[in-house]
Structure formats: C-alpha cells, structure tokens
C-alpha cells in the first residue's frame, strides 16, 4: 500500500487526483495539507482523509509520496521540502515559472534520490495514446508540421495573477501540448515565436489570456500552437487539446476531449458535453503509485516538466523582444 499526501488544493486538478487515489486498490490518500484551512478541511472531509494544518507534520508522517497542487510559484519550495523529507513527488504543471526553478527542483530530487514526476495526464488520454502509437508506427510517415490548440475557460483567481502563476493563459496552456509533441515526435524544441494578448476579458485580467505560438523542433518540424482562456461561460465544455499532424503519408487529427455525447438539458439552458472514454488522471496517478512501489521515477519525469517550462519561458521572452527565441542546450 502506497500512502500519499496532497499538498494544497489551490489547483483544481487536486480534486481529480484525490478521487483517482481513492479509487486505486494499491494506494491510500493519507492526508491533506493546505494553507487555506477551510479549503483543506473541506477536501479532507470530501475524500475521507486527515487534514494537517502544518505541512511539515504531513511530510514527517509515514507517507511514501506527495502530489503537489499548489500555485505555480510555490512548487519549487514544496518540492525541495518534500525531497529533503525523502518522499516521492508528483508535481502539477507547469513545473515552475522559470527554467532556473525547474532545474533546481530536478536537482533537489536527484540529490535526495527520490522519484520526481510532472503531472501531464494528457499522455494517458486514449485519443492521444492512439495518436502516439500511430505516428510512432510510421503509418503517417515523417511528420513535417503540426497545428495545435489548448483552449480553456478563464480559471480566474491566482491563475491570472502574475506573482502566483508566473504568467497567464500561455503559462497555463502551453506545457501540455509542448510535452505531447516531445512525447509523440521524440524530438526537442529549437525555436519559439509568440504573440500574447490580454483582450478576451475586457482587460479585467492582469495577465495574458491568449498566446499564439510558433515552434520549431529538431529537423525543422513547423508547429503552431494557441494557448488561451477563450471559451465563454456558455461554451458546452471547459476547453480542448487538439493537434493536426501533417506527415509524408497523411494527416492525423486529434481532438482529445471530443469523446463526448451532446447533452441538451433545460435544467442547464445551454448545450453540454458528457465525456466517455478513459480517465487520464487515473492513468497518471496509477503510474505514480507504481513508481513508488518500484522505487523508480514516474514515467513522465521532472526533465519532461523542465523541457516544457523552457518552451513557455521562451514564449514570454519572444513576446518581449518581438523576435524568435532559440532554445539551446
């Protein structure tokens, strides 16, 4: 039995992970810490576990690992403390808001010899898994280009506060697709260009709410990506992850969350989507639990998280300079 704690419910993905943990036979949600007492206590009640008012008390307990779902800017300090306490770590995306922080986190976990993973559940989304297998099989030949989106509705709160999130929609919605492209194409990014806008919410946000990015990967693969909080409240679902792959042998379109039936209910007074298919969160958490049992890194590592951070940071830099930014190692 792997005992796992959750640090902070600031990020709503914590609720999905907690519910997945409770559904797994080999895992136990052993405790929750949150700097927001009310939120933490409510979550502990909801998921039938203990609330810790002190982070160190949870880290010093007999838990094996932690899932960190705090505000972006707080990830580094929590990862370093959890690593020092010898716990296995699964950290919410984006791993960090600077390349320096992400590198320090990877280093801290290496030094403490603990497993360190980044929460990129999309790798466990069935349509994306099929897309990865198809492209890796060579059925679509060499991939020359891809056009991607990761749209969402505005999460508000700390997500749109620069000093807690490190950016806006582009910080929030670039890393998933960046990671998927690395995973599917087995290539690294080389260049980034980006235009940012704060113009979809009447300027009420303090951060960007849309970013239109152009990326290049090794071998000159041409990629466009749009990260946004552009879905209105009346939209039938929260958003999307889409990729159109252009290959020498054909074109492959993935619309990852389009496993849905259309729901028209007078109770909601708007069209809604009901999803079917696998639960990516459960895939992610299952691998994390497995990594604790096997004393290995989770399949999606801290380095994967770092590489995606590099792309996002370069995007913000490109917007500032108005030029293409090279990513080099």
């Amino acid at each position: 039995m792997a005992k796992i704690g959750i640090l902070s419910f600031a990020h709503m993905h914590a609720y999905g992970y907690a519910s997945s943990l409770n559904s797994l036979p080999g895992a136990e949600l052993a405790g929750i810490w949150d700097d927001d007492l009310e939120r933490g206590e409510a979550a502990a009640k909801q998921f039938k576990t203990r609330f810790f008012s002190k982070m160190d008390a949870l880290l010093e307990s007999d838990i094996d690992g932690v899932i960190i779902t705090s505000e972006n800017i707080r990830h580094r300090a929590m990862v370093e403390r959890a690593a020092a306490a010898g716990k296995w770590i699964l950290c919410e995306k984006p791993l960090a808001t600077t390349v320096e922080d992400a590198k320090a986190m990877v280093q801290a976990c290496k030094k403490a010899k603990v497993g360190f993973g980044t929460a990129f559940p999309c790798r466990y989304s069935p349509p994306l898994m099929v897309a990865m297998q198809q492209i890796q099989s060579g059925a679509f030949g060499e991939i020359y280009a891809a056009s991607c989106t990761n749209h969402g509705s505005s999460p508000g709160g700390w997500f749109a506060q620069d000093k807690l999130a490190g950016g806006g929609a582009t910080m929030d919605h670039t890393v998933h697709v960046a990671d998927l492209l690395r995973w599917i194409l087995k290539k690294e990014f080389t260049k980034v260009y980006c235009e940012l806008g704060n113009q979809l919410h009447k300027g009420s946000l303090k951060t960007d709410d849309v970013g239109s990015l152009h990326l290049e990967m090794e071998g000159g693969v041409q990629i466009s990506h749009v990260a946004s909080w552009s879905r209105p409240k009346s939209f039938p679902t929260w958003g999307d992850v889409t990729i159109q792959f252009i290959g020498s042998k054909g074109v492959l379109d993935v619309d990852a969350f389009n496993q849905k039936i259309n729901v028209y209910s007078d109770a909601a007074m708007k069209a809604e989507w009901a999803h079917y298919g696998g639960n990516p969160d459960t895939g992610l958490v299952t691998d994390f639990v497995q990594s604790i049992h096997e004393r290995r890194d989770p399949s999606i590592t801290g380095i994967d998280g770092l590489r995606a951070v590099e792309v996002t940071v370069a995007a913000y830099q490109s917007h500032k300079t108005g030029k293409t930014v090279k990513i080099g190692r």
């Binding site: 056009s147 260009y193 235009e195 849309v210 990015l213 152009h214 041409q222 466009s224």
Partner: peptide, 26 residues
Amino acid sequence: LMDYAQMTIRMKSGLIATVVGTWAHP
C-alpha cells in the same frame, strides 16, 4: 508535393489572428 502554412497576424487594433492553410491533405 504539399504545402502547409501557419501564420500569426497582429492587427493594428491589437487583435491576434491565427491562420492555417493546407494543401497537405490527401
């Protein structure tokens, strides 16, 4: 033989447009 174009256009108004054109489909 194929072409695929991906563009970002910043309009004078500030609006951002993403334009994708394909002659890469079978």
